[in-house]
Each structure stands twice: as C-alpha cells, then as structure tokens.
Design a protein around this nucleic acid. Structure first.
Length: 474
RNA sequence: GGCCCGGUGGUCUAGUGGUCAGGACGUCUGCCUUUCACGCAGAAGAUCACGGGUUCGAACCCCGUCCGGGUCACCA
C-alpha cells in the first residue's frame, strides 16, 4: 500500500509550489489506491505563523485534494499525532537511542563559537565529536545547554535512486554533523521527518528539490535507526522568468491570491500539474480525476519550470468552457457580493453566463466584465462613441426605443427583424443602428450578439437605456 | 567557493540512435461575425547550451566546457 504525505511547515500561507507538491502526492496515492496524509512540521517555534495551518487546510479543501489521514481529518488517524510539536517525546527517545549507540553526540558549542567557525573555516569543526561521553552527560545533567548531532561517517559514498532524477551519489565527507535535536528540545527537520516518515509508514517521499542535498543525512539516519528508507522523488522548483525560485516579488505566490482572482481550483491544479508532468500524449486539459488514472512519477521531469500566467489563464478558461452554465452560475453569488452588487436572480444569471462564457476566463469576468447586465451603464466608451455614433444616430435610436416599447414579442429573432425593418425604412444599413444600440445599451463596443443581449436584458431596461443614450450622446 | 541537480522555439512540453524535431500558450495574418470573444485556417519563431568523441547515422550514448538553479543554520 502506497502511503505518501504532504508535510508543510506553518511558517506561511500555502504556496503554489506547495500545492503542486501536494497534488503530486495526492495523485500518486489515488493512482495506486494508497493514502495521502497531511503532517504539520512545526518544529521551528520562532517562525510560526498563527493561522498558517488554517490557511493550508482551507486552501487544500478549496482545491479538493484533502488528506485521507492526518491533520484536518476527523479523527486524524492511527499514526498520530500528526503535528510534530505534539511528538516531542518520540524524537527525544530516538535521539537518546542514537546517543547510546554512539551514532550521535552532545555538542556544547555556543552560537558565538559556531558563528566564528563559519567565518574561519566554513562550518562546524566537529569539536565535540570525540568529547568524553561521561563528561558530556555530566554537563548535560547539570543543565548545560547543548544540541545533539549525528556522527556522520567519514569517506563513505551515500547513494540512492531518485524516482525523478535517477541515481544520485554523495560523498559523506560533504555532509556535516547535522544537529538533530536542538537545545530547546525540539528536533530539527531531519530527525523529525525521518522518524515520522518511518512511524507513519510513508513509502514515497515526494518533495521539492531543495531537499535533495539533505537526503544523504536522511539516508544515514534511516541506517542508524535500523530502518528501510522510503523511495524518494525530488521535484524541480517552480521558478520565475529569471529562473529563480518563485517568490513574493514575482507577484502572486500564495494559493489564496489565485483563489481571490477567481481561478477555478481545477484550472490551477491542471496548470500546476503540467509544470513538470505530462502524459506524453499531447493532452493538456485534465481534470484531477482523469490525472488520477494515469499519473506516474516516471513521467515527471527534473528541470525547473517557469510559472506562465498566460498559460494558466488559458487552462482555466478551458475548464470554464467545459462547465455547464448552471454550474458556473452557482459559483457566482460570492463574486457579486465581493463587488458590492446584489446577486441577480438565478435564471437570469444562467442566461448571462450562456452569453458571456466564451468571453470570460476568470469567475469575476462574469461580474465586472459584464456589468451592463446588472446595472445601467454609467458612461459610454469614448473611442466607440467617436467611431459608431453618427449625427443621425440619436434620432434612430430614439425611434428604435419607441418600436421596442410597442413590440408585441421579445425574442432575439423579433428584435432583429424590428431593427432591420426600421433601418430599411430609413434607408440605412443595419450597422447604422446596431452599433449605436449596442453602445447605448451596454456602454461599450464589444460583447455578445446584440439581439440575444437585448432579449436577456428585457424591454424595460432596453427602452430606458436607449432613451437615456439618445439624450446624452450627440 | 565545495557538493548536488538541471539545460528542446519567449514559455510549458513530446521525444531515449534514423521524424521535415511533434503539441500547447503567447505573438502575427486571414476567415467567420453587427462588435468583442469563441471557433477555423495559416505564419513567424529552435545552430535541440557549446565543443569534442562513439556510430553508417545523434536532441537522444560518452567526455569536457559553459550557463542556470539548489544546498552548505540549534529554518523548513
């Protein structure tokens, strides 16, 4: 049984790169009928962000890639607790075990000493590695602050087969005697992750490339503890156009921001999946449930990927196009509320969606980008007015408004017939009225087919707006 | 700087010895249309980072170089 985990640290909000990592983990679990767990790695008390866990949970729920086990589940599961700060005795136990086995040692170097070592010879000089054990214990028992470091063997080759990068080899001489238990009694990432991954029976560790170089330490820890390591898959980073790790300076990096801009979770997820994964068949539009059926780490490739906003928008639009008008309409009320507009009646909204769908790529496009369906235009686009509003337009529009007032039916077909009839009677081409009417009724030069638009808008609204436009424009 | 990973049009990618190097986004052109968009048709855009090999034949295999990134914390 495959068991994978997404293990964010609550030092900030969920990042798009984090969501991609979570997605790949989730997909692998689904593909093989395994379990996807969520573990919170909060061992750094200095960087904790109070509502980070809530944010991560909330965004995962939004994306619908919710864990099967762990934080956020009710109950959490049998391998808990899944929050590292609640597992301190466990880490302590293993640290002690390593101490007793002589695979780790107490180190009393102060922050000042370490800073000096870094300056002078570029790293910890292992000064306590061979320090007398009894003496060290005595100092520790006396309450002296210290950390526990792992005793990394000298001159060994540490290698493993990464599922996305292939064979990777490190020289143990490059690995420092990593701190595994801090002086505050909390474990570092290295110990905590290894212990938890083992105890939680994780089979595949899928994480970002930034962890690649610490994998040899983890391998050593597994060996020291007598455990079999899981398989590893190191994902490339999501980078900006300059090739650097995507950061706040590059714009929107937290999932929240995409959510607030009105991207569909399906669109964001699809786009993120494509940043490093492809099925090899030229298909690009995928639902999560379709990806679940075919996802394979072998098809994830190792080079970094640039986050391309245009492509994201396009993928999102594809998902929008694939949705039923009613389903889109169901998502819209909150966007009206956000825009400070009353929520239109549902049937009306569904009709608007039908007309606007091809013209929208984000949810708020149906609101702000179609405002004339909900409010009379406050102004008329100047460029369009200059181009389309002729001296005789006012009179023509006024006449058309009168006709609409009296028109027996109100279908697009009847509206069109009426307009063309009037134009013919006045010796004008239809365009002479079509464009001014569009401008008058919507305030802008583009939009859905005019007659469908008038039909949806309704008689009263059209007549009112046209009369107003004929007055205002000249 | 040491170590590690990466390198196919601007971007995401397909491709593991023989194809005109395929697809998508974006860009441009045309068609459609009452407009915008969608859609359709087409175009431009790649010395497959570079240099050596191996081979009858390399984007694909080997070596070197360059460039980019990651990592070297009592952060994850």
């Amino acid at each position: 049984m495959i068991r994978v985990r997404f293990a964010p640290s609550p030092t900030g909000y969920l990042h798009v790169g984090g969501l991609r990592t979570a997605l790949y983990n989730y997909l692998l679990a689904r593909r093989h009928g395994g379990k996807f767990l969520l573990r919170v790695e909060d061992t750094d008390r200095t960087r904790l962000v109070p509502d980070a866990v809530d944010n991560i949970l909330d965004n995962l729920r939004w994306a619908d890639i919710y864990p099967d086990e762990g934080v956020g589940c009710q109950p959490e599961g049998e391998h808990g607790p899944y929050t590292q700060s609640q597992r301190l005795p466990i880490y302590r136990k293993y640290a002690d075990q390593l101490l007793e086995a002589g695979l780790a040692y107490r180190c009393f170097a102060t922050a000042e000493e370490l800073a000096e070592m870094r300056q002078n010879h570029g790293g910890y000089d292992r000064r306590y590695r061979d320090y007398d054990v009894a003496e060290a214990k005595k100092r520790a028992d006396a309450g002296e602050a210290h950390v526990i470091r792992m005793k990394v063997p000298v001159g060994e080759s540490l290698e493993f087969d990464d599922l996305v990068r292939g064979h990777v080899r490190f020289d143990s001489n490059q690995v420092d005697d990593q701190v595994i238990l801090k002086s505050d009694g909390f474990p570092t990432y290295h110990l905590a992750a290894v212990v938890d991954d083992h105890e939680m029976e994780i089979t595949h560790v899928i994480r970002g490339e930034e962890w690649l170089t610490s994998t040899p330490k983890h391998l050593l820890l597994y060996r020291f503890l007598g455990w079999t390591p899981p398989r590893f898959a190191h994902l490339s980073l999501v980078v900006n156009i300059q090739g650097k790790k995507l950061s706040k300076r590059d714009g929107d990096v937290s999932v929240n921001e995409y959510r607030e801009q009105g991207y569909l979770p399906a669109g964001l997820l699809n786009f993120l999946a494509l940043l490093g994964w492809s099925n090899g068949d030229n298909r690009e539009v995928w639902s999560v449930s379709d990806m679940e059926k075919v996802f394979a780490l072998e098809r994830v490739h190792p080079s970094p990927a640039v986050f391309d906003f245009d492509k994201l928008r396009h993928i999102n639009q594809q998902h929008l196009f694939a949705m039923e008008d009613t389903a889109i309409a169901d998502l819209l009320p909150e966007w009206f509320t956000k825009a400070g507009l009353p929520v239109p009646e549902r049937d009306y909204l569904v009709r608007v969606v039908g007309l606007m769908k091809q013209r929208c790529s984000l949810l708020p496009d149906f609101v702000g980008g179609a405002s004339y369906f909900y409010q009379d235009p406050e102004s008329f686009d100047e460029t369009t007015a200059r181009k389309r509003w002729k001296p005789e337009s006012g009179e023509l529009v006024r006449e058309f408004a009168d006709r609409l007032q009296a028109l027996p039916g109100w279908t697009a077909v009847e509206l069109e017939a009426s307009l063309r009839e009037l134009c013919e009677a006045r010796g004008q081409g239809a365009a002479a009225l079509i464009h001014p009417v569009r401008l008058g009724v919507s305030g802008v030069g583009g939009g859905p087919g005019l007659f469908e638009m008038l039909e949806v808008l309704g008689r009263e609204v059209c007549v009112r707006r046209l009369r107003k436009a004929a007055e205002v424009l000249k």
